[in-house]
């Protein structure tokens, strides 16, 4: 199983380095404007995008067919992709923390509750995005999973824009959460874990029933 993870890392090494450099550039611009949350979310979106790129490569080279004849169960094949996703998010999270930390040091600020919230919420949102897109990949292929990712990020963003434009009061009210920060983040983490777990089971079921061409 680790072989499949290794293959994805080998495939994306170059792309990830390129993206990391671009991110650093944007981090500089937005950090100087005092907006670190952009970097957190952008890294999270990029991680999902890189994950989908691995799937596109798998599809293009018929790797799914090859993996299915290796001494691995379909559950292990799916498990490897989810493990890859988690490792990508871990690296993305560390990268975000490093950028945000450097930004704070340079500007001489301290970590606010809001910054911490964003730093944790961004990868969790990305993981839920991965939980949505991965079953789409196993059922419909890489192209449709990319569409699923766009819908996942696009629809909520559009809703926020529409609400902010036409009913800004609603948005303000909606953000008043009575939970403590820790409780809220724990709830989000639990939700993400459940989403990933269910997504994994669904993907395994899809791949086990799938006829591979």
């Amino acid at each position: 199983m680790t072989g499949l993870v290794l293959k994805d890392f080998m495939l994306m090494k170059k792309n990830a380095l390129y993206i990391a450099v671009v991110m650093l550039f944007f981090a500089g611009i937005y950090g100087s404007m005092g907006s670190d949350s952009f970097v957190s979310f952008f890294v999270s979106v990029m991680v999902v995008s890189i994950l989908i790129s691995t799937m596109s490569y798998d599809e293009f080279y018929h790797w799914e067919r090859y993996a299915a004849v290796l001494p691995l169960s379909r559950r292990q094949i799916v498990g490897a992709k989810y493990l890859t996703a988690l490792l990508f998010f871990a690296i993305g999270g560390l990268y975000t923390m490093a950028i945000d930390g450097a930004s704070l040091l340079l500007r001489g600020g301290s970590l606010s509750g809001e910054a911490l919230l964003v730093m944790v919420l961004a990868p969790l949102t990305g993981m839920v995005g991965a939980a949505v897109t991965l079953p789409f990949y196993y059922r419909f292929g890489a192209q449709r999973s990319r569409t699923a990712m766009l819908v996942f990020y696009g629809v909520p963003s559009l809703l926020v824009v529409v609400v902010a434009r036409f009913a800004p009061g609603l948005l303000k009210g909606g953000l008043e959460v009575s939970l403590t920060l820790g409780g809220f983040l724990a709830g989000c983490a639990l939700f993400t874990a459940v989403a990933l777990g269910l997504s994994f089971l669904l993907s395994v079921r899809i791949l086990e029933k799938k006829e591979i061409k």
């Binding site: 072989g3 290794l6 495939l11 004849v69």
Partner: peptide, 27 residues
């Protein structure tokens, strides 16, 4: 079982050494 399909299934940006490393962790 060893399998050879009608088309090479290995990602083209890898080399034979990398393919060996990947498959060495699977077989």
């Amino acid at each position: 079982i060893g399998v050879v399909f009608d088309e090479c299934s290995f990602p083209e940006m890898l080399d034979a050494a990398q393919i060996g490393k990947v498959l060495g962790k699977i077989h």
